[in-house]
């Protein structure tokens, strides 16, 4: 395993934990798209079903369990514990427009036409677009008081490190997973958009609201 994995792997859960802590500390999930977090929970659930059928390493199993636990904890905080602060009126992205086409494509373009493999493919495609409801919400409201720079930083970091990991594995291990790389590329582009929105809307908004 190259160095980009043990650094890249924890970056996404780190981002989620930062989000969890932020919700917990402020007792509020305002500005966070529950739909995006729900999609991430669905992503990790469908992707890690292989936990029941194959064992790769203790590291691999524990990381997967951490991913699943963190994503469900976030969903629990948004939809149950701090439901009153959830900004559902602005979280209006129609997730069926993502889930249905993604489901269709994962049936058509996959490595192997078997239930687990199709679900894995579904999760890879879905992860690449799961941030869209959050993007939609930010572009609508222009504010994300609880989406911190840190959440954004760690999400982007995990993407960047995985891209380097794929290049590394291609050159040194002859490993190349086209589905993961294409979906990862799409996801990286969307995160650039997320980053752009953050710079133009969120930071600008913050600046304007500063006391003179």
């Amino acid at each position: 395993m190259n160095i980009f994995r043990p650094t890249g792997d924890p970056s996404h859960p780190a981002a989620i934990v930062i989000l969890l802590l932020k919700i917990w500390k402020t007792r509020s999930c305002a500005g966070i798209s529950g739909k995006s977090q729900l999609l991430f929970a669905l992503v990790f659930t469908t992707r890690y079903l292989g936990l029941f059928t194959s064992f790769i390493s203790l590291y691999n199993t524990s990381m997967k369990l951490i991913y699943i636990a963190c994503s469900y904890a976030t969903v629990y905080l948004i939809y149950m514990k701090f439901k009153a602060t959830y900004d559902g009126n602005h979280d209006t992205f129609r997730v069926e427009f993502l889930v249905v086409p993604v489901g269709g494509v994962s049936f058509l373009v996959n490595h192997d036409f078997s239930p687990l493999e199709i679900l894995w493919t579904f999760s890879i495609y879905l992860e690449s677009v799961a941030i869209l409801p959050q993007l939609f919400m930010i572009s609508k409201t222009g504010e994300t008081e609880t989406i911190t720079n840190h959440y954004l930083f760690f999400l982007c970091l995990s993407r960047a490190l995985y891209l380097v990991n794929w290049i590394w594995r291609f050159y040194f291990e002859g490993f190349f997973d086209l589905i993961a790389v294409v979906a990862g590329g799409v996801q990286t582009i969307l995160y650039c958009d997320f980053f752009y929105l953050h710079l133009t809307k969120v930071l600008k908004g913050k600046k304007l609201s500063l006391p003179a």
């Binding site: 992707r47 991913y67 995985y162 490993f175």
Partner: peptide, 10 residues
């Protein structure tokens, strides 16, 4: 062994 289908990545 099919390297792709082991899905060792997260």
């Amino acid at each position: 062994k099919n390297a792709v289908l082991t899905h060792d990545e997260l």
